[in-house]
């Protein structure tokens, strides 16, 4: 009997502790600069690192960062390995069936094609895009030949070495590549997705609401726009 009571007490204690200081685990890819990347010190860095830390401060939560491969990032969220995805993930109806998104923290951003020359056939050529992204879906819809790689970096490398005629990715990701390299933007920018938001498990509405409120407050006082200017430059759409 004594044993039983002790066991229950220990249980109550551990549950109480879990509620008292909840550490929120933020999952990101770490390979999508400038949204998120691993800097040379080996830490997660980028717009979303700064944004996530600020959101946690405003929501009065303790947060830690976890990196996970892009293609298993949603399964690992729903099976509870971390509590939120903050990885440049566009809000799409398909994903909304499985996870719950906050309001977008960046406005619907443009996706662009980048290539080595501007005379590229965007509808009949070979276009590289990251597996499992809205861009990959879009390439299939245009009828172009889709060439898939697991990371955005490999998609860009494919254009450089001639495997693909052009790459389709978020414009913000391509801007630094185009500015510093031999590639140029081609064709029209295409608006895809409904902006980028944080994703939570559907069974976790309270935490989602906390972050939603924090994002709203950052939009209201202009810190969100300042972050976008800092990481994406003046040309990126703002609130």
């Amino acid at each position: 009997m004594k044993k039983l009571i002790l066991g229950t007490a220990a249980l109550a204690l551990s549950v109480g502790m879990a509620l008292a200081q909840d550490v929120v685990r933020l999952g990101t890819e770490g390979a999508y600069p400038p949204y998120n990347f691993i800097n040379d010190a080996g830490e997660v860095d980028g717009l979303e690192r700064e944004l996530g830390d600020e959101l946690c401060k405003r929501a009065e939560l303790t947060c830690t960062w976890v990196t996970n491969d892009w293609d298993s990032i949603i399964p690992n969220l729903v099976s509870g390995n971390y509590d939120s995805i903050i990885a440049g993930m566009s809000i799409t109806p398909e994903r909304e069936e499985v996870v719950a998104f906050t309001q977008p923290y960046t406005p619907p951003s443009m996706s662009s094609y980048a290539a080595l020359s501007d005379d590229v056939d965007l509808e009949g050529g070979v276009i590289s895009a990251q597996t499992g992204t809205i861009q990959a879906n879009h390439v299939v819809d245009t009828g172009a030949t889709l060439l898939e790689y697991p990371t955005s970096d490999e998609c860009i490398a494919a254009v450089r070495n001639g495997e693909a005629d052009a790459v389709l990715a978020d414009k913000d990701v391509l801007v630094p590549v185009v500015n510093e390299g031999d590639m140029v933007f081609v064709g029209e920018d295409t608006p895809l997705g409904n902006g980028i938001g944080m994703a939570f498990r559907k069974s976790d509405p309270e935490m989602k609401d906390k972050f939603d409120a924090a994002i709203q407050s950052m939009k209201d006082d202009g810190t969100m726009n300042a972050l976008i200017i800092k990481w994406m430059g003046e040309d990126s759409p703002r609130w």
């Binding site: 551990s14 976890v66 729903v78 509870g80």
Partner: peptide
Amino acid sequence: TDPVRQGSDFVVCPAAKLPLSTSPQWAH
């Protein structure tokens, strides 16, 4: 009482999480 499978979510009570969400990163 809540079901463990909610749609595609796999939800167990906080005390059953492995490792506990309060554990430091090295534990994970």
